[in-house]
């Protein structure tokens, strides 16, 4: 199974996302922001980083990169896309997911091992988790506060689209402790924490993040 990882100028965790794909047993395929060819990948990861320096709003410029035109169109048609951190910001800017990410309420970048609860396991990216399972994976962001208006938040919760929620200390002021959400169909998932940094015990706090990558690979295998 081929999983594409997009590199924008300023992407930082692209190599880590590719590694996570490989650790999970998939083939990682590098996608370049200026290309339009999705290289026949079966799914795409938008990695963390500071695309274009994030000097405007985080993700606001990346959303207009040539590679995104095809990804946005495909995602609306059910193509699997995972946005991690900056990738989540790009998905919100692309209107594939509702809401926005704003500067952390503590006004500082925060990097730490974060406890999360997986609340939705019917997405393309979280089916290998048990509902309610608690996991610990790194979070590292300066603009990770998830915000949306009340009706959007109510709808997300009502439709069960909150994929992961912060447990314990909310690291960035996200409304209703939301760490990640999905679209209606569950093919598009965005989250601020970094599952790709929790796939091997040597260089991560746990291997709790691996499930995001095995979930999509198992699904792709099952449906191919």
């Amino acid at each position: 199974m081929r999983i594409g990882v997009v590199t924008f100028p300023g992407s930082l965790d692209d190599r880590d996302a590719a590694r996570a794909v490989r650790v999970a047993g998939g083939e990682a395929v590098a996608l370049w922001h200026a290309d339009t060819d999705l290289r026949s990948v079966d799914a795409v990861v938008l990695p963390g980083g500071f695309s274009y320096g994030d000097y405007l709003r985080a993700g606001a410029i990346a959303r207009f990169a040539p590679i995104m035109t095809g990804i946005i169109a495909a995602a609306r048609g059910g193509f699997p896309v995972l946005g991690i951190c900056n990738g989540f910001q790009v998905l919100c800017e692309s209107h594939l997911l509702p809401g926005a990410l704003v500067r952390n309420d503590r006004r500082k970048f925060v990097c730490r091992d974060q406890r999360l609860r997986v609340e939705k396991t019917s997405t393309f990216w979280t089916s290998d988790y048990a509902a309610g399972q608690e996991i610990v994976i790194p979070i590292k962001n300066g603009e990770g506060g998830y915000v949306a208006d009340d009706s959007t938040l109510d709808r997300l919760e009502g439709e069960g689209r909150v994929v992961v929620r912060y447990v314990g200390d909310n690291p960035n002021g996200s409304y209703r402790d939301i760490a990640g959400i999905s679209n209606e169909a569950g093919n598009v998932v965005g989250l601020m924490p970094h599952p790709e940094h929790a796939v091997e015990t040597l260089c991560g706090p746990t291997t709790d993040g691996l499930g995001f990558f095995t979930s999509i690979l198992n699904r792709l295998v099952a449906t191919s």
């Binding site: 965790d13 190599r15 880590d16 500082k108 970048f109 990097c111 590292k140 940094h197």
Partner: peptide, 10 residues
């Protein structure tokens, strides 16, 4: 040190 990314590059 929580203001520094210690994980990137994996």
């Amino acid at each position: 040190t929580d203001q520094y990314d210690r994980y990137v590059l994996g």
